[in-house]
Design a protein around this nucleic acid. Sequence first.
DNA 1: CCTTGCCTTGACGCCGACGTCAAGGATTAC
DNA 2: GTAATCCTTGACGTCGGCGTCAAGGCAAGG
Lengths: 139, 139
Amino acid sequence: MRIGELAEQAGTTTRTLRYYESRGLLPARRAENGYRTYDDSDLRLIQQIRTLQDFGFDLEETRPFVDCLRAGHPAGDACPASLAVYRRKLDELDALIDQLRSVRAEVGAHLTRAELQASAELPGGPAPRCELDWKDEDR
Amino acid sequence: MRIGELAEQAGTTTRTLRYYESRGLLPARRAENGYRTYDDSDLRLIQQIRTLQDFGFDLEETRPFVDCLRAGHPAGDACPASLAVYRRKLDELDALIDQLRSVRAEVGAHLTRAELQASAELPGGPAPRCELDWKDEDR
DNA sequence: CCTTGCCTTGACGCCGACGTCAAGGATTAC
DNA sequence: GTAATCCTTGACGTCGGCGTCAAGGCAAGG
């Protein structure tokens, strides 16, 4: 299998596969004419990488999983190094989610306060209304 | 007030202020010698920008707030355009948090499954154990 | 007068994961 | 034979928000 076919089967591009190779994640055999040659095991490596990338893993973080698969294990997460990445990622996700919820609460409070201000000013007579153009271009 | 002093008072750098100006967010008066000149109202603009950036707003998203302040309003979120940004951001945050929680659940499930596999194999005798080096360099 | 320290503009560097040419060789299709 | 399609390497572009020089102007203290 050559790079174009592999890319198509994996739902990605040849550029991406060459990039993975340049990062040392996906070394390729070469045919006599210099063309890269792959087999089904390479397809599984790519699927593992893409699954993790969909979870938001950096490319570097997928390396233990890929190494694990290439070491002959049936799953990329059969090795302790992969489990460690899982655990680290869970901690990161928990921290990030907490932070985003905190931000959400703050922004929500700001919005509520600003809306109250606006509604309090409208019936109040000469309260300074906003005169800025209000176009919905950015929606 | 010159750019260095303003940067210090705002807790940022001159590079950042010049960048804001290049983006049209923070236009500066000029002294006769060409030096940028600022006053306290500029400090408030920067504080508004930094508050929103801490919330994760893009620079572009702070523009309505800055325009609103420069239009003479006491708060950057006194204008409808700013409120619209708040609402859009809340939607984005909600969507992102949901997505991250979904990812967290999936990664957690993967970890649990892999841990079960590992513990099931250890007592089973010749089960293929991972032989990859396990260094904690990346912790 | 000279040094020090502020200011100016301009321009390249960074990060991650590729996209997008460019120039040329190999293979396949007709 | 030749055109279309694949492959190769190399290198620059993208995006945001600045960091980090570089080369030079202006101001103030000793």
